[in-house]
Amino acid sequence: MDSILEFIVGRYNYWLYILLMMIGLYAMISKNNLTKKIVGMNIFQTAIILFYISIGFKKGGTIPILEHTSHAVEVSHFVNPLPHVLMLTAIVVSVSTFGVALALAIMIYREHGTLEEDEILKCLEQ
């Protein structure tokens, strides 16, 4: 029992990211409004960022900024910098995707006057 509890508590960051990711995924595939879908997409991407950042964390570790004086770096004192770097990229990607998606949404709105998917589809069928 304890081990299960420990298993659950010890990995709560993972449960959080899964939850977040599924919220985003659900919004993306089931929502009718395109803006909501775009928001869902953003949540989805953010969940992955959370996942990566939590990989890099070490208990008792601090931000990976070293002192100029110290010679031997005690690695376990600093969190893993690589996921941060990767996620900077992922953030930028998600911002860019968001921008492009918004631009497309504006184009759609300009053309159809609505952002509800079913109305657009109806409009397209005609």
Binding site: L34, M41, T97, V100, A101, L104, A105, M107, I108, E111, H112, I120, C123, L124
Partner: peptide, 11 residues
């Protein structure tokens, strides 16, 4: 009429 919507779906 079609392309932006198709493209957004692709996004």
């Amino acid at each position: 009429r079609q392309a932006p919507f198709a493209s957004l779906n692709y996004v």
